[in-house]
Design a protein around this nucleic acid. Sequence first.
DNA 1: GCCAACGTTGGC
DNA 2: GCCAACGTTGGC
Length: 152
Amino acid sequence: MKYWLMKSEPGTFGITDLDRLPEKTDHWDGIRNYQARNFMRDQMHIGDKAFFYHSNCPEPGIVGTMEVVREAYPDFTALDPDSHYFDPKSSPENNRWCMVDMQLRDIFPRTLTLVELRQHAPLGEMILLRKGNRLSIMPVTVGEWEYIIGLL
DNA sequence: GCCAACGTTGGC
DNA sequence: GCCAACGTTGGC
């Protein structure tokens, strides 16, 4: 089993939005970065766990956990001309993009903010904390996962 | 709203 | 295959 971190803007889709959905499950659509896509397509498996990270908001940070409940399948929003995520270079026969289904596990009692995470030396190597990082889906090591859970 | 960092595109 | 121009991300 692997561990991940997945970013979403709470103004678009936050953890409370996931909490309100049937089965607390949704497809993680709109990933338009090859590295993030490759992680989903090649390495994410049912049962993997992921941190839900709120980005581009007043208090960026980790707000809870999720679990992979469906492995990669075509991201239909790439084929929808009305979608913000429409990709004219994708077709039903050759859709460049994929998504996975995620189910909510825990909502943390407080946000583990980016500011707080940066204060912990054991997390110094986290991809999230590296300068210039922009990945929206990234792997997390077991050590990092357990350390972060321990901060709660 | 600014802007640094980085990814993607496309001309050559 | 290089690289300038452009677009996007996301913290601040």
